[in-house]
Simulated assay, not measured.
Amino acid sequence: MTYGGAAAPDASGSRTGGVPLTPPGFEWPRCRECSGAMQFLAQIRLADVDPGNVGLLSIFMCQNDPGLCDEWDATAGGNRAFVFGADATKPAAVPADGITLLDETSAIEFERVEADDYLQAREGWAQVTSRSALEVLGQAGGQVAWQQNDETPTCGPCGEPMSFMVQLEEGHDPRTSANFGGGGCGYGFRCLSCRDAAFLWQQ
């Protein structure tokens, strides 16, 4: 996943930042720790990860009191991930309170790189293209590149391990990037059976 330039805040494709496209009746998630509105980080078209799928994976994280709401944990209540269907077409109403949006909306492009793992692919892409490795925004599918131990979430409804969907870097510009502790990565998962989703980050 590479930086594809600036995107419209309501672009329908995979992107970081902007305003999430959501289904009717969606309510912006609030942090279970501080009750503040969460920050929207990214939406990923499911078809970009698994061709033939329809809908979006959307990721939110609390940034009202960074580090105090356990937003790195998949179950502590400081972040949320959603799997939306084909009816996720309207920009959500953004709450007036809380830190809700990133300072930049970035389009995501997808490029296939032959490598043994994600880290090798990231560095190899930068060398071949002569672009900064910061312009690699993550990976879709593949093998998880954990920065610490394996923390694959378990689906609450069915109890099965979730499927890895996306790994997110903080962003191409430190001034507008997400906050994963400074140099960390975020990880998005979904349950293919229950349509449940989860997010966490590691540094």
Rank of each mutant, 00 (worst) to 15 (best):
G4H: 06
A11D: 13
S12E: 12
G13T: 12
S14I: 06
L21Y: 03
G25Q: 13
E33Q: 14
E33I: 14
A37W: 02
A37C: 02
M38L: 08
L41V: 11
L41S: 13
I44T: 15
R45W: 00
D48V: 09
P51W: 03
P51V: 06
L57Y: 03
S58E: 11
Q63H: 08
D65T: 13
P66V: 11
P66K: 06
D70P: 00
D73Y: 06
A74W: 03
A76Y: 09
G78K: 07
N79I: 06
A81E: 03
F82M: 07
V83M: 04
P91V: 05
V94A: 08
A96H: 06
A96E: 12
I99A: 12
I99H: 09
A107N: 10
A107Q: 10
E111A: 15
R131C: 06
R131N: 13
S132I: 04
S132Q: 03
A133K: 13
L134W: 06
L134D: 13
L134A: 15
E135Q: 15
L137R: 03
L137W: 00
A140R: 11
Q143T: 15
V144K: 02
Q147D: 10
G159F: 00
E160Q: 14
R175F: 09
G181R: 03
G183K: 04
G186C: 07
R195Y: 04
R195D: 13
A197Q: 00
A198V: 03
